[in-house]
Amino acid sequence: MSSPSLTLPSPAPAAARKRRVLEILGALAIAGTYIYLVLNQPADITGGPGSASALIALSGFLVGAILLVVAVLPTLPTSTMVLIPVALVLNIVLGQFVGSTLVPFYLDAIGTVLIAVLAGPAAGAATGALSSIVWSFFNPTVLPFAAGAALIGCLAGLAARYGLFRRFYLAPVAGFLTGIIGGVVSAPVAAFVFGGTSGVATGAIVSAFRSMGDTLLAAITKQALISDPMDKAIVFAAVAVLVYALPRRASLQFPFVRRHRVLAGKAPEQGS
């Protein structure tokens, strides 16, 4: 019969358990850091820059993101691995472009969400984190947002898994909700690591809240609640347009798309 070298053995379950543990640890690191920062924030901001909070935000979120990458990356098939650089190119090219304009949006997650829809939440999370890591090669300020980007990828994958990309109008709704969660989680990074936001337009919104006497974290969280949900709604809608424009053979090569019937049978009608 068949010689073993030409065929692959069935995948072993033991390795999967170890990876699941790493995933949970990563998620715990991110959640724990967030809770600690929110509980401890008031005393901190006036204590001057470089305070312990910046270090805790940085290390907690980074460790969490790295654990997620370590857990997920080795499990991805080559067909997903080669798509990650494509996603990163889309993220960086669009993000760099929009960040330089005076629009209070980022649009730096189109590639991440695209992967999440095609390959699932785990791949989406890893792509989000890697996107921040690789982008920091040109712009080190995005590195601390790796955990937030991973969360967006994971939530987008879950939205796809539960059929929110089957109807064109549901995608922006899912994006809006994802944006709320993502914005709230990323706000402490902006507040404690940067002491503000990295764009002028978003900075103006924060200033408005600060002038009403909000704490820095509250002001940035409110700004995030204004920008992020709209931003992610636009991103999810754009990704829905893109995945339905892909030839079916291309999208159906991904087992995640087939198994969970991510896309509707036929492209839904949408305004052009």
Binding site: S2, S3, T7, L8
Partner: peptide
């Protein structure tokens, strides 16, 4: 059939999975 090894497929889940690197 490659190098004397014949793999049979019938479209089911327990078909052999080709090892692309060795192939």
């Amino acid at each position: 059939e490659l190098a004397g090894t014949r793999l049979h497929f019938n479209g089911s889940a327990d078909d052999p999975r080709i090892n692309p690197a060795q192939w």
